[in-house]
Design a protein around this nucleic acid. Sequence first.
DNA 1: TCAAGTATACTTGTATACAAGTATTATAAT
DNA 2: ATTATAATACTTGTATACAAGTATACTTGA
Lengths: 243, 243
Amino acid sequence: MTGAKDFLYPEKWLSKASSGDRVAYELRMRIISGMIESGAILSENKLAADFEVSRSPIREALKILASENLIRLERMGAVVIGLKEKEIEEIYDVRLMIESFVFERLVRMDTRELAIELSKILEMMKVAIKYQDADEFSYQDVLFHETIIRYVDHSYILMIWNNLKPVMESFILLSMRMRFEEKYEDFTRIINNHELYIDAIRTKDRNLMIKSLHQNFDDVQGKVEDLWSSQQMLSKGAEQQDD
Amino acid sequence: MTGAKDFLYPEKWLSKASSGDRVAYELRMRIISGMIESGAILSENKLAADFEVSRSPIREALKILASENLIRLERMGAVVIGLKEKEIEEIYDVRLMIESFVFERLVRMDTRELAIELSKILEMMKVAIKYQDADEFSYQDVLFHETIIRYVDHSYILMIWNNLKPVMESFILLSMRMRFEEKYEDFTRIINNHELYIDAIRTKDRNLMIKSLHQNFDDVQGKVEDLWSSQQMLSKGAEQQDD
DNA sequence: TCAAGTATACTTGTATACAAGTATTATAAT
DNA sequence: ATTATAATACTTGTATACAAGTATACTTGA
């Protein structure tokens, strides 16, 4: 099995994860990166052999990926669905939906504390850019949105987020790794946009928030076409794996 | 273990379900009905003994319930969260959110076919009322909303629904069982409201749709207070288990 | 009586074993 | 050559076994 030991998912993020979770994280990356193509059929036994674990954690992982709509569990093997443009758009639909919902709650709350917290995360993102740490940047980016969502304390919205987060995280990770190599100028725009978002939260400006959300979508999705074509982005995002 | 063999979930709905799914369905009912109180700690071994299966399906079930926010998996035992008023409100928040989203898609589609399909389901509901079949009524009620959601063909919205559905189904099941005994007059109102919903879809009337959605919420949630108090509804909903 | 340490009875996570079912392939008959 | 049947190599779902870790209770010492 050549290259079976090169993991796409940052290993330091897996410090206390179970074997099943590790497999899920890694498989997710491979599916989203296109390394495992959509339509492929995954066998529990083969995966167990590949990852050198028993079927128990593999089954766990497959259940997780199925709940994230990345694979479809059938009577004979798991069929890879993957992330095509349609799915990415749909994910952003949902993100727009839940963040809009969250914003409606935020406008009735004291958001000063949140704004401070978000500013801190934004600083972290800037540092990550400075040191060209794509993984750290992605982590903070995801954390940014999670922080907003958690702030309203809504367990079922959080449930949705929890289902969406791993896929988003993997996608962002791959996307950012590529852009650090090829589209470095993107990041000033991303940072600006996040600043806009914080302003929207601080001033409770609904339109500004929607604007920045849409812009964020364009930032990631609008550019996807050229990134995505023939899955180049993915091999690009996949090959780099620093410290 | 007295009464361990009385299942709350309709067994005929479990014809080809795996053992793990069965356990999940049943545990879900017991948690939502209050038969298992929130705060209780579930042990895999005890559950395995109770349900007379091995730990494998139990673990599977617990993972499912955790993803539905009904329990919290901790290092030592699974802690029951349950459905209190807050959670029920939150579930309806999410339902309102996704059905609103779906409606926005529907207004750009040809909804005639859907309206017909919904009318059929409504007829089924009427029959279920006539024959006082609470379980069948609940099934059709859930199907009604699922049919609407599936019609727009959005895999990530469907993903949310799939996470929400089992909890909603159980809740509706328990609620309807009780009402067939005590609040029979509720059903004409529920039927009327669903007719309103179909009209909204047919005429693509956004306001009408929101109105009927809110009304539906009031129908289930607004009355919850008295149903819910001291979990009486639940034992009521639990005891009846026909044919 | 109280503190410290040890023993015990839990817990989860993973590996392995087995049963039942399904697709595929090979063989045999027409 | 083609179809029917049988053998084989898969598949999943479940049970069981074991290892490592954690809380509880108990014992021992002061």
